[in-house]
Design a protein around this nucleic acid. Sequence first.
DNA 1: TTAAAAAATGTAAGCGCTTACATTTTACTG
DNA 2: CAGTAAAATGTAAGCGCTTACATTTTTTAA
Lengths: 347, 347
Amino acid sequence: MSRESLPPTPASSVPTLADVARMANVSTATVSRCLNSPDQVAERTRTRVMAAVKGLGYAPNFGARALASKQTNTIGAVIPTMENAIFARGIQAFQEELGRHGYTLLVASSSYQEALEEEQIRTLTARGADGLLLIGFHRNARVYEFLKTRSVPALVAWAYDAENNTPSIGFSNKHAMVDLARIVFEKGHRHIGMISADTTANDRARDRLTGVKLAAGEAGLDVDRMPVIETTYSIECGVEAFRQIMAWTPRPTAVFCGNDVLAIGALRAAKEMGLSVPGDVSITGFDDIELASLAEPALTTVHVPHREMGRRAAGMLVDMVTKKITPKSVELQTDIRLRRTLGPPPT
Amino acid sequence: MSRESLPPTPASSVPTLADVARMANVSTATVSRCLNSPDQVAERTRTRVMAAVKGLGYAPNFGARALASKQTNTIGAVIPTMENAIFARGIQAFQEELGRHGYTLLVASSSYQEALEEEQIRTLTARGADGLLLIGFHRNARVYEFLKTRSVPALVAWAYDAENNTPSIGFSNKHAMVDLARIVFEKGHRHIGMISADTTANDRARDRLTGVKLAAGEAGLDVDRMPVIETTYSIECGVEAFRQIMAWTPRPTAVFCGNDVLAIGALRAAKEMGLSVPGDVSITGFDDIELASLAEPALTTVHVPHREMGRRAAGMLVDMVTKKITPKSVELQTDIRLRRTLGPPPT
DNA sequence: TTAAAAAATGTAAGCGCTTACATTTTACTG
DNA sequence: CAGTAAAATGTAAGCGCTTACATTTTTTAA
């Protein structure tokens, strides 16, 4: 067993920068430059180095690169769940755009639990995420501080607030809901109800509820007597909540749902209860997931540009990471999709 | 500006292991052990170290850890797209289980393009993924070789093949389809058609088609004359394909669809064409996505345990990475969900 | 009480890369 | 062709951690 010399043929293990350098007869610095800023290297050298890279099947070691350059080219996203089609769609677009910029996506999900979200944010940060995509503003101030001391830029999506100093991309859940609710009131509804997602740790749900209340106030309704049921994100819960809300006196002639999934549940419940939609009761959703236009009757809802949001979020985050800037929050437009589930109240 | 001494207070930057060591009055090795194998450290020391960790708000540097330990605790997954609910669901479960084992998920999507998939596999490998989750077996042999030389363990999901030496977790697409098709033929259908996803780079689609053909052969049909349309994964494509296939002579009385999304499209097309389902034509899907039971009439399809697959895939992959074993492939059971879209052929 | 074994801790050598700075080569100018 | 600027390349110092091995401390057994 000889030893004591610069390892000439590094066994059969994974080739390193040094191997490439040796083969191409240059220093490791030159190889590194070939890979990271090719135009700093003379063409002849570059060709030679690249040949060596190819010949050896060299690929840079991630850890070493991260350690030396202090960045991972990785962006983290903490979302409630991918099973929710709206996030799946947005994240898909987010990831595609990230890829175009040479970034990779690290994902974690919070299952709508605040504590878990905090943990995931810490995990992704520890995993070296250069930047973070977060959903909504609501979270412990401690988390924002943590991100600041670690100087990990974060972008909030699916929510919009020009005032907040965390940049965001999204839409005003409140305004969107106000717009929808106004249309509903114009149809003449005076007794309404709302099935909302849990509002405790979910500012989006909260804003949507606020929107309905605002518009209701405008229309002269007694907002305090409006039945509101908070429940979990699932069709079954929508069914159950709808039953409860229709037991109210006076019985609502229109039921706002905080999202399409709950609305689909409501729709099904109505069917089971033998109620005609929109003859006996109107139902509205929010998100415009695929199911919305497929439902029978098709669901009136608020259309949200999820893909666009994901795509642009990626661009913003990459800018934040590379240029170290804090972009302006961007507000996306939602629009009302009037479909069959909305009609005038029964006479 | 003084200098020349071991940096005592490292400015306000991120604390390192050395800072913790200094504060707790131990060596960096001890701190490292406290974090990675706590029971090798005396309780008193550990308490002191942990206090320092907390006091300093220390979190290990990912790159350094990866470089030194040669592992990232990160698992990569390359899926066609998250917009497909079946992958979203499976990946969600995958990620949750990964988290339970202390692993983080890195995702990339191939958009069903073979070349892109290869690129993504290389990217995730370069990003330091300790192991990889891949969908289906079909890919260039070069990719498998690459993975082998880099010794990155890979697990194939959504497909099952006990013979293949890449371990897998999934189900037999062929058998599942045979089972479904047999039921269809028992109803008396003699003229069938199939709307399939693109089979070129998709072994799952191919196997499903094979399944239908096998059962058709069993039933004594002339397999070669069976109309098959290959199209893209989308409701619209399903609509279009269904129109074409119903123009065939003799007109099919049952149309198999390679997945539920195509089936939903077919269903809609049937409605638009004024055909009764299953009165005039029966339609079947595959996957049992949420939409399947919500459709009107509800779709007969093959139920696949996506979540279970994701969850167990995570466990297997973690074993592969940590214990360096190659697990046995596991076959999951699918089952037929007989719903309203299947009936006997018109008389 | 003491030697040997076991447990705890420390020392220091990398891991493979990037990059500031130093040096060499090439290109240009008068 | 010398003299200088610009371009290309090399040198080597880390980046922050893990871990084999060495050393010290504690425990155990005789």
